[in-house]
């Protein structure tokens, strides 16, 4: 099940993203405290933990939506702490959101084209006068977007408004938009929430295909234990803002501390406890 390079190189030093002593405080609540995380190139890392453990906060700090009180985020050896979201995506980290955030009144293709925004340069004058360079760039943006929309099997809906397509399709569209920014690290916040078993299976196959075919690393928050066990190379468990365990999926799965914090008392077949409710 886990025979991919991620695990083999786990001890190597090809770290793509690293957080050091990350701390985020909201008022009197310490959402994340002294959190260390390292993601290696080419692996799928799952961040799990009970609701309110601080997973999404970690994501928001990494992708620049929050600024941490303490600690640093290092991506490809460079500090990106405190950078704005639009700068983070240029650096090569693209994300999706827990509750889908698309541009509802724009077409699916336009949604994906937005992902290419950070890879294009045309300014005001070039756009008004439609210079040859700008036209070439537009063709490229469109080409990338069309490739990505085919990749997630939504070609038929390219001119449909994003708000009109099915929920599962919207999730895939959001992933496609993130991919259109040509990221090195894809950060997915609960990609399988709200999907039916068949869609979840497709999603898992899709993500594994991505890792295989593209130079990509994936960090995901996930509640569905089948997904976590099925595709992760490494699992990090959070509770109350702290890291309580990490390791290969099977190891984490049997860790008594994790079972206590995350799965509660339902250790017998209760692995899917929680995903349905938020």
């Amino acid at each position: 099940m886990i025979d991919r390079p991620g695990k083999a190189t786990r001890n190597g030093n090809d770290i793509l993203l690293e957080t050091q002593g990350l701390t985020k405080i909201f008022g009197g609540l310490t959402a994340v405290s002294d959190f260390d995380l390292d993601i290696h190139k080419g692996e799928i890392l799952s961040l799990i933990g009970p609701n309110g453990a601080g997973k999404t906060t970690v994501f928001n700090v990494v992708t620049g939506i929050y600024r941490p009180e303490r600690g640093d985020v290092v991506f490809k050896g460079r500090m990106i702490t405190g950078k704005k979201p639009h700068q983070i995506i240029v650096a090569g980290i693209a994300r999706t959101f827990q509750n889908i955030r698309l541009f509802p009144d724009m077409t699916c293709l336009e949604n994906i084209m937005a992902g290419q925004h950070c890879r294009a340069k045309a300014g005001l004058a070039a756009s008004v006068f439609r210079t040859p360079k700008m036209r070439r760039e537009e063709r490229r943006i469109r080409q990338v977007a069309e490739d990505r929309i085919r990749q997630v099997d939504l070609w038929a809906f390219r001119d449909e408004l994003a708000k009109n397509i099915a929920y599962g399709s919207q999730k895939m569209l959001e992933i496609a938009r993130a991919l259109a920014s040509e990221p090195e690290l894809l950060v997915l916040d609960e990609p399988s929430s709200g999907l039916n078993p068949k869609e979840t299976e497709d999603l898992m196959a899709f993500l594994q295909g991505l890792i295989r075919e593209e130079d990509l690393t994936i960090l995901l928050i996930e509640h569905d234990m089948n997904v976590v066990m099925g595709i992760s190379d490494w699992v990090v468990v959070m509770d109350e803002g702290k890291k309580i365990a990490q390791g290969p999926p099977v190891e984490v799965y049997n860790n008594p501390e994790v079972i206590e914090a995350y799965l509660g008392k339902e250790e017998e077949g209760g692995e899917d406890a929680g995903p349905a409710s938020h």
Binding site: P85, H86, I89, R95, L102, F103, A114, H117, C118, A178
Partner: peptide, 9 residues
């Protein structure tokens, strides 16, 4: 927020 996360300043 989505615009910002998609790389738009």
């Amino acid at each position: 927020i989505a615009a910002s996360a998609s790389g738009i300043d």
